[in-house]
Nucleic acid binder design. Structure first.
Length: 461
RNA sequence: GGCGACGUAGCCAAGUGGUAAGGCAGGGGUCUGCAAAACCCUUAUCCUGGGUUCGAUUCCCAGCGUCGCCUCCA
């Protein structure tokens, strides 16, 4: 079974053949300047599923994800809030963990931070200057794009024609408009480190190149991030890393996730039109949000819609319903369900093998749920349990752990049981009005009553 | 201006050169004291106009529309 991954660099689906064991995977993390929004959730959840699926497929994965915990925006935001920039980014780094843990995004094995990588960054910049790929000006150190012949390959900007009408700030000292800062000299700012070029801080792109080399080495198998990072960030990362190490290509597979759109435009901190993850999680369970975000292919844009989210919630409740399905004690074992389980696993895997097609995989899981419900009345308890285990296992690969809402105070249970028992007596006495009244009243309190052939079940809404 | 993505049912969303997964909603049933849950049946010819082909929603061209990158961005 081979896995195909669409590689941004080539624009094609390629057979996944990692060069490293464990697989080296780097995901561009957040600049912790504000709370994580749905766009972050989309990217990190899809990257999480890629990692989970590789692990499901038998690979070991070494996953590294950075925090760009100091940059111009963080400093701006902190100053405006009259806060220390380091505290500000630390606070938002913690917010990231809090939210992503709730979303069951597996933690990376390492989380390098810019502020902890300054010496290595300075070394890398020195190395780039020595090798003629960078030069010093009065404002800092710049990478010389012209010194890297394949600059622009990732994003398809192989010539500088495209920059003609671009809004690029003019800097007289820069040799080329494409050049970018590796080190920004800043003698008076609130945050700075000493360097051979004066007190200052790293430019935006160099940190990723450095931290990748520090944690994973000169070659990695998978590099992920949002598609808005392709240019210039990832383009520059390639130039910096490959110019320094001569390792080409330093990334085997570039994977980029589509953007979340809201009100017809990209969700972003900078434009202010973002919905925080925490906000959404106050309305739906983490699993529902995951299911919603995974119901679109990772490369596609997603127009956030509160209506679609609600629709997903209803669908999710159907998945939960599958867990309540029971086989028949007196039914003999038969292989109908296990056969279906094998088929569904195959469909699931072929979907995921095809560039991690989560929407198709989810479709297969829904179908399997329906099959379980349909066959349960004529299947043994063992058959149904086995099928449900596959159902649960496949959802787990997507990071979705089905669970019933917890009874927050377990001592309400005897009272509900008592009401159910009383209601049962009323039903046996044909006092339907009273029995229905109890059912309705409990429903108002968030307790769902369902009468089945085997008796009455209840659960919390 | 340059580069790129997308346009599939009421909503969300897969997919294929030979008449289109799945979810939600709707309609009709089965089951149930009623209901709920569950199950069954049912609801699209794929933006427009050309072209290639025996045949295109799927390939090519043009147009219209939406979005992204080129500045910070996941």
């Amino acid at each position: 079974m081979t896995i195909l991954i669409e590689n941004t660099r080539t624009g094609r689906k390629e057979v996944f053949e990692p060069r490293n064991d464990p697989v080296r995977m780097y995901v561009c993390g957040m600049t912790p300047k504000d709370l994580p929004h749905l766009g972050h959730a989309f990217m990190f959840i899809h990257m999480d599923v890629i990692r989970r699926y590789l692990e499901y497929s038998g690979y070991s994965v070494h996953h590294v994800q950075n925090f760009t915990d100091i940059d111009d925006k963080i400093i701006d935001r902190a100053i405006k809030a009259d806060r220390d920039p380091m505290d500000w980014s630390q606070e938002h780094t913690e917010a990231y963990f809090k939210v992503m843990d709730r979303l069951k995004v597996l933690r990376a094995h390492e989380f390098p931070r810019v502020t902890e990588s300054i010496p290595a960054i300075i070394q890398d910049v020195q190395q780039l200057i020595r090798s003629g790929h960078a030069y010093v000006t009065s404002t800092g150190v710049y990478f010389d794009a012209g010194s890297f012949p394949t600059y622009g390959e990732l994003s398809g900007r192989t010539s500088d024609d495209g920059l003609a009408g671009a809004r690029v700030a003019v800097d007289e000292e820069k040799k080329d408009v494409r050049d970018w800062a590796l080190w920004k000299v800043d003698s008076t700012g609130p945050i700075g480190w000493e360097s051979p070029w004066g007190r200052g801080r790293p430019g935006w792109h160099i940190e990723c190149s450095t931290m990748i080399q520090e944690t994973l080495g000169s070659h990695i198998d998978i590099h992920g991030g949002g598609i808005d990072l392709v240019f210039p960030h990832h383009e520059n990362e390639i130039a910096q890393a490959e110019a320094a190490t001569q390792e080409t290509p330093f990334v085997s597979y570039w994977t980029h996730t589509g953007l979340i759109l809201t009100d017809g435009e990209k969700m972003a901190h900078s434009s202010g039109n973002f919905t925080t993850v925490t906000d959404v999680l106050s309305k739906v369970a983490p699993d529902v949000l995951r299911l919603y975000l995974l119901s679109v292919h990772y490369r596609s844009p997603l127009h956030f819609s509160a209506l679609a989210l609600q629709q997903t919630k209803t669908g999710y409740e159907r998945l939960l319903g599958v867990l309540r399905t029971r086989g028949q004690d007196e039914s003999p074992d038969n292989n109908a369900l296990s056969k279906s389980g094998l088929e569904i696993r195959k469909t699931f895997e072929s979907s995921m093998n095809d560039d991690f097609n989560t929407p198709r995989a989810i479709g297969a899981i829904y179908e399997f749920g329906r099959t379980i419900n349909r066959l349960a009345p004529t299947s043994s308890v063992t058959n149904v349990t086995e099928a449900k285990n596959i159902f649960i296992e496949l959802l787990e690969v997507l990071g979705i752990t089905l669970y019933e809402p917890e009874t927050n105070s377990s001592n309400i249970e005897p009272y509900i049981n008592m009401l159910v028992a009383v209601r049962q007596q009323l039903r046996e006495a044909n006092k339907w009005d009273l029995a229905d009244q109890i059912r309705d009243d409990l429903a108002d309190l968030g307790v769902i009553i369902e009468d089945t052939a085997d008796g009455t079940d209840w659960r919390l809404a």
